[in-house]
Design a protein around this nucleic acid. Structure first.
Length: 768
DNA sequence: TTAGGGTTAG
């Protein structure tokens, strides 16, 4: 059935087939039985006819209709989207205009896919034209003469106002302040209006009730004032509300429906009002001041600017008694990096903004002082307008000096320049362009909770909430931390501001050192010196030079026994502290002189602790600390050249029950160097690469103690096997397994500059 | 009665 037109709204009611029952848009739900219901509403928006690729190219049209039943005026969801398909889409496009009243029946009720964005209605109506019923009644044209009821009010042009009279006027708003508390008992609205006479008149409205104040969204809106008194102030006429007053406002957009906004219980509104509004719109559109619009999108905000922003609230958080944070977006990407104000997730009301933060789409607005009253009541998802918002460059906490400053937004206290904010109804014409921009970001909403390789950029669901293994195969590592961090992409990690702990999933592209014995390091926890473990040739050379022309040293504190070596002129001596003779420990610590490296290695199989020494002028002296100061079974221990004290001259060995490397080092005045493992991984995911150290967490990562690995080929082989698993030799990147890693982002001083470093922490290889 | 436009300083 094609779209049918009727001339009168009452005809529309007559067209309702007897078996159908009028239902209100507000009461429609997914479970409503639609077959015997019809709705009657005014068309507030008609979209173009488009071809729908997902439905075999069928033509479709979206219209937004709004219920006008006065009983429903304050109810939620009085507007709903209607999707017309096929020929009905074309018919409707040709037959209906904004402002027309329509009667629809035999529609299908579907879940609205755009409800999260447009907040219109959880459902939408779909009509495919087969048996559907669409009647259109064109909006009233001001073609007939005014009816008697319309003669009730006369409106005085603004250039004809006389002092001390009570008048009704129409005007276009050229300046306004949202209602603010006066020093008296009322809220005050201050505005300035003009009309075709081009005279500007100031106007103040006092009322205790906020809801009685005129609803003004932007310069160019039309306002009708009833029963305002005139008075002179500073040589100009001004208007003040007086007993019995009322205001009605209209959007100023040419061709948008003439929809009155007022809190008056009953108000007169007729065809002459529509005509007056349309004439004022037409006139104002050609005035220079109307184009002086301060509304700016985030994409064109410049630092330092004061501007008006129309946007949607994503999340809010109370910062303190004088400040509320509103996280908003308008769908456009700011050219400057936007400041992200960190708030504990439990303090934040509303959706996560992480995906939008990452796209530089989220503006953090700090709202102060007198504006808190309005901000406090805003719900996430609400559309709103900030007036006289201030864009300010600000350095993020811990931000490096050479990084770009971030743009923050402040709605300062006070009402200068109309500073304030106001929520906008979802159907406001001022929101049409915003909504269509937000529409383009539909993916962002839907992808927020999805884990998919292509979506890693915006992936942040807590790991335990997602079956990550389904997509990437088993991870060869496991995070051991208790915290429930969001997983970030490497690109996101690189953009983060330290300090930060985060989870990533990545593959190993490269690692260093490739010769794994080189990952074993000697580290002095005192002076933080780190060096490679000396190789055998360097150590053997120290032994050779120490043994050259050596005469056994003769110390009072030591008992000595000597033997000739196979080399002429070289004696091998072993010394034991006299302090220890007679104690059970006397064989635990033996000083060896005159051996080669090989010889002391052989001896160390039979003795627990061997300290190689040399003779200098007959006095026993430690060898150059390039060599180990202690051989203990398979292990060799080194001393720090910077931090070791020379206290060997008169050593005291009594009173130690068990000699371990630490006790020996202390007795010798040596600062023991620790064995550590150090590797550098080049990690890679779909977004970026990142060089991360494996250092403090390395022993836990490999399940290998560094000192044990220093004396065990088996343990060194174990590390090699692990590395061959996570980065198989000659493998392509795709063949390498994914690793779940916890990464610490931190800064270190490097030549007086802060350098950002990444370190793998809280992560272990999974053991079979 | 109040305000009568003309920037916070976070």
């Amino acid at each position: 059935m094609p779209v049918q037109k009727v001339n009168d709204s009452s005809d529309l009611d007559a067209k309702v087939p007897s078996h159908l029952q009028r239902t209100s848009i507000t009461s429609l739900t997914m479970t409503s039985e639609p077959s015997h219901r019809c709705v009657k509403a005014r068309v507030v928006h008609i979209g173009p006819v488009i071809s729908c690729a997902q439905k075999d190219g069928i033509e479709m049209l979206r219209a937004e209709i709004k219920e006008e039943d006065p009983l429903q005026r304050t109810a939620e969801h009085t507007s709903i989207n209607v999707i017309f398909f096929g020929t009905l889409a074309k018919d409707f496009s040709q037959s209906a205009r904004q402002g027309d009243v329509v009667l629809l029946a035999d529609f299908t009720i579907k879940k609205s896919p755009s409800f999260l964005r447009d907040k219109l209605h959880p459902c939408q109506l779909e009509m495919d034209g087969k048996d559907d019923c669409v009647y259109v009644c064109p909006s009233a044209e001001p073609s007939h003469g005014p009816s008697s009821s319309e003669a009730k009010y006369t409106y005085v042009p603004l250039n004809n106002l006389k002092p001390k009279t009570v008048v009704n006027v129409y005007g276009v708003v050229t300046f306004f302040k949202q209602p603010f508390p006066s020093k008296g008992s009322d809220y005050c609205s201050t505005l300035k209006i003009t009309d075709q006479s081009d005279v500007k008149v100031g106007c103040n409205i006092f009322s205790k009730k906020l809801e009685d104040h005129p609803v003004i969204f932007r310069v160019g809106d039309i306002i009708r004032l009833h029963r305002f008194k005139t008075e002179m102030f500073r040589d100009s006429m001004s208007l003040l509300n007086t007993y019995g007053w009322s205001t009605v406002t209209f959007d100023g957009t040419i061709d948008s429906p003439v929809v009155p906004h007022t809190s008056s219980k009953s108000f007169h509104f007729g065809e002459s009002d529509i005509r007056t509004v349309q004439e004022l719109r037409q006139w104002a559109a050609n005035q220079s001041w109307i184009s002086n619009d301060l509304t700016v999108s985030l994409s064109s905000v410049k630092p330092g600017m004061y501007f008006d922003l129309t946007c949607q609230l994503l999340a809010k958080a109370i910062m303190d008694s004088r400040c509320i944070l509103l996280k908003v977006w308008d769908g456009t990407k700011c050219q400057h990096p936007l400041l992200n104000v960190a708030v504990a997730s439990d303090a934040l009301e509303g959706e996560s903004t992480v995906a939008k933060d990452r796209m530089n789409l989220t503006a953090n607005v700090l709202v102060y002082d007198n504006h808190l009253e309005v901000a406090r009541d805003l719900k996430p998802g609400t559309f709103l307008c900030f007036y006289n918002l201030h864009a300010l460059l600000q350095r993020a906490p811990d931000q490096l000096p050479d990084q770009l400053e971030h743009l923050s937004f402040h709605l300062h206290g006070g009402t200068s320049y109309g500073r304030g904010l106001r929520s906008l109804p979802a159907e406001s014409p001022a929101l049409q362009s915003l909504k269509s921009v937000l529409e383009k970001h539909v993916d962002l909403d839907e992808y927020d909770e999805v884990n998919d390789g292509t979506l890693l950029e915006i992936w942040y669901t807590p790991p335990e909430a997602v079956d990550a293994e389904a997509d990437t195969g088993p991870s060869y590592t496991v995070q051991t931390c208790e915290h429930n961090m969001r997983r970030l992409t490497l690109a996101r990690v690189k953009r983060s501001t330290p300090p930060l702990l985060c989870h990533v999933q990545a593959r190993v592209k490269k690692y260093n050192p490739q010769q794994l014995y080189q990952c074993l390091k000697l580290f002095c926890s005192n002076c933080k010196t780190m060096e490679d473990v000396p190789d055998d040739s360097a150590v053997a050379k120290v032994f050779r030079e120490s043994a050259k022309d050596s005469q056994p040293c003769d110390e009072q504190w030591a008992a000595t026994s000597s033997a000739s070596s196979r080399e002429p002129g070289r004696a091998i001596s072993m010394h034991i502290s006299r302090d220890m003779v007679g104690e059970s420990t006397h064989m635990q610590l033996i000083f060896v002189e005159g051996t080669t490296l090989d010889e002391i290695c052989v001896l160390s199989r039979d003795y627990k602790n061997l300290v190689p020494v040399r003779s200098v002028n007959g006095r026993m002296t430690l060898m150059d600390l390039t060599a180990p100061f202690l051989f203990s079974g398979d292990k060799r221990y080194y001393g720090c050249k910077q931090c070791s004290l020379n206290t060997f001259q008169n050593p005291v060995f009594a009173g130690v029950e068990t000699w371990d490397e630490q006790a020996v080092a202390e007795a010798l005045g040596v600062r023991l160097m620790q064995y550590r493992l150090l590797m550098q991984f080049e990690l890679e995911d779909q977004t970026d690469t990142l060089e991360a150290l494996l250092w403090e967490n390395a022993e836990r990562f490999f399940h290998v103690s560094a000192v044990d690995a220093s004396g065990s080929q088996d343990l060194q082989d174990k590390i090699q096997t692990i590395m061959d698993t996570i980065q198989p030799p000659d493998s392509s990147l795709e063949e390498r397994p994914w690793l779940d890693l916890c990464v610490s982002v931190y800064t270190v001083k490097d030549n007086d500059r802060n350098k950002v470093c990444y370190q793998i922490t809280n992560t272990e290889i999974k053991e079979e």
